[in-house]
Simulated scan of single mutants.
Amino acid sequence: MSDRSHTLGEANIESFATHTAYFCCPAWGVREWRSFDQISLPISDLGFRQGVTAVERLRTYGGMVFCAEQHLLRLRETLRLLKIENGPSTGQLEGLIEECLKLNAELVRQVDVGMTIWVTAGSSKFDPTWAVHLNAIDHEAVAIRQMHGQPIVITSVVQPPMESWPRQAKVRNRLHYYLADLEAKQVDPDATGMLLDLDGSVTESSVANVAIVREGRLVVPPEKKC
């Protein structure tokens, strides 16, 4: 394992808690870079009250953000599907991604990191609340999964149907994943839960999509179910 993929020590964990992040909260008149531990939501924000939050999670490899353009395109589509208007532009986010890496250069040099962009529907009469920040990656857990696989349990929890919200939307409403993982851990403490579709077919887990290798070929779910 490379030096960039080592397990985070106590100093690095503290660095993530206090790294520099961008936060925009029109309800509070805030648009600034600030310490990550100073980011919070108004109780009236729809991201808190109803879970109306679009999200994209990126990561770095060798200090460079992977597939940023594709992530930002998907975020724009999620905002469109959720009808969240007046959020950050793609160009603005591109600049903030670069600036976030520069402001946290010492941390990014030590280890590859995750980066999260989230946008809520905001508080009543105010534009969306949103942020750009880093998050730690558990490189040790990733390495274990790569070497030994990930235990899974097919649970009784059903994925919200397309009629509830489009599955193309990347959102922060994760109650179904939470319940599936709780059920899975009753069987195996290390397992992640697999969700079902209304027809009983397997869809995904809280951390990954599903694919099967069958007779040397990769089998994935039909596009209409993705």
Rank of each mutant, 00 (worst) to 15 (best):
D188R: 05
G122K: 00
P160F: 00
Q150E: 12
T120D: 07
S124T: 12
L175E: 14
H176Q: 14
V119R: 05
Q146H: 11
V202K: 03
D127M: 13
Y178P: 00
D138A: 02
V113R: 09
T129P: 06
V158C: 02
I152R: 08
L134D: 06
V158G: 02
R167D: 00
A121R: 10
T155N: 13
A131S: 15
S164L: 04
T203H: 01
N135R: 14
L198D: 06
K125P: 00
V202M: 09
V171G: 03
V158F: 05
D197S: 04
F126T: 08
R172M: 11
D112F: 03
G149I: 11
D188A: 03
S123Q: 04
R167I: 00
S201N: 14
L198C: 03
W130F: 12
A121F: 09
M147E: 15
V111N: 13
Y177E: 04
P128W: 06
L182K: 08
M162K: 07
K185V: 08
V202C: 11
R174I: 10
D112Y: 05
G114A: 10
N173W: 12
H133W: 11
D197M: 07
K170G: 00
V187G: 04
T129K: 02
T155K: 12
D188V: 02
S123K: 04
I154M: 07
K125T: 15
D199S: 10
T116Q: 14
S201Y: 01
R174C: 11
Q168Y: 01
L195I: 03
E183I: 10
T129M: 04
A121P: 06
Q110E: 15
L182I: 06
L196N: 06
S124Y: 15
R172G: 13
R167G: 00
T155Y: 06
A169S: 15
H148L: 03
Q168T: 07
L134E: 05
D127K: 14
L198K: 04
R174W: 15
V158Y: 01
P128D: 11
I117Q: 07
R145F: 00
L198N: 01
L195G: 05
D188I: 03
F126W: 14
G114V: 07
T203R: 03
A191N: 12
A191S: 09
P189I: 04
I117P: 05
R172I: 01
V153A: 00
D188H: 07
L175H: 12
T203L: 05
V113I: 14
D190L: 13
E183S: 13
L134H: 09
S123W: 10
S123H: 05
I117G: 04
R174V: 10
I144D: 15
V187L: 03
I137Q: 09
M115C: 12
Q159F: 00
P166F: 01
A136C: 05
P151E: 04
H176P: 03
V142Q: 13
P128C: 09
Q168N: 02
D199M: 06
N135W: 15
H176M: 05
E140D: 08
V119W: 09
W130I: 06
